[in-house]
Write a protein that binds this DNA or RNA. Structure first.
Lengths: 185, 185
DNA sequence: AACATTAATTATCATATGTAAAGTACTTTC
DNA sequence: GAAAGTACTTTACATATGATAATTAATGTT
């Protein structure tokens, strides 16, 4: 499953895959619990095998969802992993979940001896970069209603899995405002 | 100059640097001219030696600035370079500029034989990823006024170099709205 | 220098979103 | 199963931003 995801970015040999696997652990986390709390420096790349999660932070007491992640996706707080600074963001499970944790420091140590692994993760990060650019475009010049409709199109079942208050803050609006948008069907 | 920038991400040997240099060209572009027009597939990584540029696109006749880039920075339309799809975005010079163009296809071909070059660009892309995440945070939950002040703090001389209309669309607001924000000092 | 074009500001009005408060429905806990 | 808590909606009002149009300022062209 993890390997299938990897292969979709860059084919790796059995040996390379096993080298990565060596530094992975499977975690079972309950709904509403944190995979990583606010304030810790991110040293792990997570892969969601089952469940869904959100990256969140507080702005003046307001709980803001930066992103959602569902099965078969990677979750990383890049701004912490790539700078070495503590993250003001946490990762919370929105459903009971099964998570594969990859030790990032150990993984990065593999790069000099396993170029294919470095290539794999370079391509994964490139893909993430494209996702972020698209998100910026959406936030910069779409109305809240357009962003809501786009989100439903991209993740049709998100309404069944994620509380509306998180969707609201993800869209950059208040729950009241989201209610209004939903009401005018 | 380019090498100094590279070194700030990852030290490369003379040989590696020369391998990259082989696929670079220096361009002189006049103010208001396009470095790359809308609709072309991005196959080049640009480095700004002198001048400043913006990535822009149209949304229903409205000319939107996605990002600004100044001296000593890299400009790439990731969503095109990393997907191979034509970009609906262009790159325009806002001042007469001197640009170093790196042929991305040739560069990527160096990766298997020059692992240090791959590492260098992985780190550059990681840095860009962090920048994009920060931009998302700014767009998602700051008011237009906060975003304006943050921009001035980050690029204090931007007002002298960039027309306000571009700054407005970069902030996700109309020029009229930016005028108002500036008026209430 | 005169003219034409574009950029920026200001004013007015319309609309979208925020804030606060109250009500309803759903969950959780004991 | 009652009580408490949480999520969501609705209403009323406040504020920020958008749209349009008119004016002034700045820039480019001949």
């Amino acid at each position: 499953m993890l390997r299938a995801l990897f292969n979709s970015f860059h084919k790796v040999s059995d040996e390379d895959y096993q080298a990565i696997e060596q530094f992975t652990a499977t975690l079972h986390i309950k709904k509403n619990h944190d995979l990583q709390p606010i304030g810790h420096t991110c040293k792990t790349i997570y892969f969601i095998k089952k469940g869904c999660a959100r990256i969140y932070y507080f702005k003046e007491d307001i709980n803001i969802t930066e992103s959602f992640s569902f099965e078969n996706n990677i979750v990383v707080r890049y701004e912490s992993l790539f700078t070495g600074r503590p993250s003001k963001k946490g990762i919370q499970l929105l459903e009971d979940g099964e998570i594969i944790a990859i030790n990032a420091a150990k993984l990065f140590e593999l790069f000099p001896t396993h170029p294919a692994i470095e290539t794999l993760f370079r391509k994964i990060f490139q893909h993430c970069l494209v996702e972020q650019v698209n998100r910026i475009e959406s936030l910069q010049f779409h109305t809240a209603e357009e962003r809501y409709k786009d989100l439903l199109q991209l993740s049709p079942n998100i309404l069944q899995r994620v509380p509306l208050k998180h969707i609201a803050s993800y869209l950059g609006i208040t729950p009241v405002s989201l209610s209004r948008i939903r009401a005018q069907h």
